[in-house]
Nucleic acid binder design. Sequence first.
DNA 1: TACCAGGTAAAAA
DNA 2: TTTTTACATGGT
Length: 267
Amino acid sequence: MLLRLPDPYDFELSTGRFRAFGTDLASRLVDGALYRVVGGREVRIAPCPGGVDVEPLDDETRPVVLHLLGAPFDLPPFYAWAEQDPIIAPVVGRLRGFRPPLQPDPFEALITSITAQQISLHTAVAIRNRLVERLGTPVGEAWSFPTRERVAAAGERMLVEVGFTRKKSEYAVGLARSDLDLGGLAALDDDEVRTRITALPGLGPWTAEWFLARHLARPHAWPAGDLALRKAAESLYGVAVTELGARLHPFQNLSAHYLLTGWLTRP
DNA sequence: TACCAGGTAAAAA
DNA sequence: TTTTTACATGGT
């Protein structure tokens, strides 16, 4: 069934992230369609005029798919704002219709960040996929991401076996076994979310900021510690990322995504 | 073959 | 208080 997305929307461009660093088993692209497990069921998302074709589309899958495809982002005001910045304007123009995908699940978002700390995203995806194959469940073309309970029960040794460092395995299991209410974070303001996340060992400012950006879609999230964003910022603007964050207010999150994708796909 | 990669905590200075 | 170091796999 057709699920409309706010115009403009470019499916290929927007889902590039799921292919750029290797296959993501939990949000898997196969023959131009995106597969994801929602509530134990396989959902197929394919591009079609006016939005995407989603099967099955119901009250359970609709909000997850909308979130996954970045529907919460309001692009027109960002595009209008970007025109007054001569550096980001051409990047935004080239990526018209790019709607940054969001991570539907908070636990998955944080585990994904832990795997990606310090190492290349290619490496991180390889390690995370091995975790998914070990503790997740295959449903059709995609895999459901390992639940918090399964990771909590698995213990550090299993995570080391799939390639986590000893420290990262402690962080991931510690997160799973913590009493942090992950779903409840959405109700808190940015700073409170940062405080709650960074209170856990192994979850630092970079992880908290990407959680705000990629899970909660907070407009002002700005992962200043991110190596790739730093390179893009310094190369395109010639200024430090922290300074650039203020200049990009109030669209830091969308700007970060456009600068990163623009840098990754630079002509 | 080295070297680096979308960090974080703990040790050392 | 600020600066260094360990971590450890996969691509180039």
